[in-house]
Design a protein around this nucleic acid. Sequence first.
DNA 1: TCACCTCGTTGGTATAGACCAGATGAGAGG
DNA 2: CCTCTCATCTGGTCTATACCAACGAGGTGA
Lengths: 246, 246
Amino acid sequence: MTADSANEFTKRSFLTLEQAIRNDLAEGRLAVDRRLPSERELAERYRTTRITLREALSHLEMDGLIYRENRRGWFVSGRRLVYNPLWRTDFQRMTREQHRQASTELIEAVSAVAPDAICGLLEQPPGTEFWRIRRRRMVDGRLVVFVEHHLSKTMFPDILEQDLTGSLTNLYREKYALEYGDVSFEINPIALTGMPAAELHCSDGTFGLQIVRVNRDQTGRILDCDVEYWRHDAVSIRIDTRDNAA
Amino acid sequence: MTADSANEFTKRSFLTLEQAIRNDLAEGRLAVDRRLPSERELAERYRTTRITLREALSHLEMDGLIYRENRRGWFVSGRRLVYNPLWRTDFQRMTREQHRQASTELIEAVSAVAPDAICGLLEQPPGTEFWRIRRRRMVDGRLVVFVEHHLSKTMFPDILEQDLTGSLTNLYREKYALEYGDVSFEINPIALTGMPAAELHCSDGTFGLQIVRVNRDQTGRILDCDVEYWRHDAVSIRIDTRDNAA
DNA sequence: TCACCTCGTTGGTATAGACCAGATGAGAGG
DNA sequence: CCTCTCATCTGGTCTATACCAACGAGGTGA
């Protein structure tokens, strides 16, 4: 690279830089989930500093083209998982229908006092104990969502003895004869911190989507409340009232 | 401030810094939509550099506590507007029900070829011309969303002669006797760039939510397609199937 | 064979200083 | 009184450099 071409970068060089990486991604020179070269190497290659380089990478991250794993590096994002929070379908089936492979990992399953906000959503007094099930899920080998379920201890007295790495939907149906009915949920764009960030291996403060869902059975009784924390680049929320009419 | 207390900031000082600003916000020392002191002033006050200061501010921005306007400064975020993309309610009414004040500004209303993706959603061949209406909306005086509507030219031949700063929902009903029926939409977390960023007065690359919505009338005919770009900290998506059953 | 430790590399965070371009407000001119 | 111009301030971007802590690979010892 000559001094002249380096000069092209003098103003808003991170844009050029960003575009260069965009091209590499678009033309498939970088495969999905593959790690990018180290920041120092990229900075040198584009004749800039790490600060500027990281500025460009942040933009690409916000745009969902790349993601990073805490202290491990930057990786190429795959296509987004299409997710309809209104569907009763379980995660495994949903991913299979999109020709993708999912897996679930149980982090903990204990009895615990739910935060006041959760108790409120579950229409119970503050300080109520619930089963708290924490899990995380992967799609095509990548960690994409951390989920915290809060369930009634009286409705599901022995649920901790079941296999909790599978679908709770199926457990409800098969063991407790409960079907999903109405659902309500809330989507908030937030920064991932603390446990969700740690479990998803992303650095504290990474952008994410929080989805809080309250599920009811066919008679309107509240079944449980899920709090999901998604890597923002891994998901696309899609809802069609025609699908949910039935 | 002594040299000793400055040393407390030597490691991950942006966290301390972040917490300090969080406290200021929580205790109301900074009012909603009020401008924060300049970056240089804050950096000096917290005895750090602008880079580090901006790191802390970015975290708060991602968490939705503050937002920035391009080259104008940082401001305190208000509470999120609760938004249900399934409702037929118009924007004005929705905000009024939440005791907030809304206004709409027309940016342009022209005939234009829609991008291929939009033509696809509207079930028309690529290259089809539609009315393209661009608007932006404020809540309590703050710009929160940029919207691009694409409508059929044959269904609404004279819509450009109407008042386009009000509710399109109402126009459909009153002038064309059309009611909303099914709706489908998609939510994507993305980086705001180009026109949406410029119209929302946010710097290129600011994080936002894109909501693409396709509206149908009571007979299932496609009415229009809206592409909305929201400031991420200004909105909370909330849906309850019990509300939409009727 | 496997647990443990060491060490190089990487990302995470920080300092110090600089210039540019857009936004703003005060002052000049009509 | 209004409009236009210009200096000033602010955020936006950049260079150059440094240290720390975590990750991972490879070697060591039980």
